[in-house]
Amino acid sequence: MPHDHADHLSPSGHPYRPDDDHPLSYWQTLEIAVRELLVEKEITTAADIAEQIDAMDARNPTMGAQVVARYWTEPEFATALLADGAKATREMGFDIGPMKLIALPNRPDLHNIVVCTLCSCYPRNLLGLPPDWYKSRAYRSRTVREPRKVLAEFGVTLPESTEVRVHDSTADMRYIVIPNRPARTEGLDQAALAALVTRDSMIGTGIARTP
């Protein structure tokens, strides 16, 4: 039996789009055919495919948020994360596969934002699959030319004195932005801090919430 996700909720808490009762498309036909051929040729198995889907579903922005909260509260971890983002993340117990990660800390005078103009490179093994807008032609085209206008569309307006630094994720590295720690969060523990860290704040199109 094919793996059935019908009972599950998506990472965003919504049910998956029902795709079983829509007319079969050409590309869906291709997907089924490719998948069955790969299983028949013993290149992969139905179980491996199901397991891979489950592994990807399990990855979501709360993993990255824990990395950020720890960066904010443990100076030794912050140093380790900057030195080798992938190693420090793995040592927290996250299965990020072969991903190479660079952490980009914001400062009051520096705001980082990540884009991939050539495709849709994203730290998927830490944050899960990218949002649709990240893959859109508009985001990929405009972010490198007019990042402040793009940021404004996401509700982030920065003073001229804050440098905006765009990171075009063009090759082998993946990036996570470390947003600035919000004010008046001194008493919060790591779990409470992580709850303030949004997905968009780790892409750079948002900032951390205030409690």
Partner: peptide, 19 residues
């Protein structure tokens, strides 16, 4: 694609279908 003119960044989000 980088640097081309384009409209607003779309905000619709869909949950991925099984296929």
């Amino acid at each position: 694609m980088g640097g081309d003119a384009a409209g607003p960044v779309p905000t619709d989000q869909h949950d991925f279908a099984l296929w």
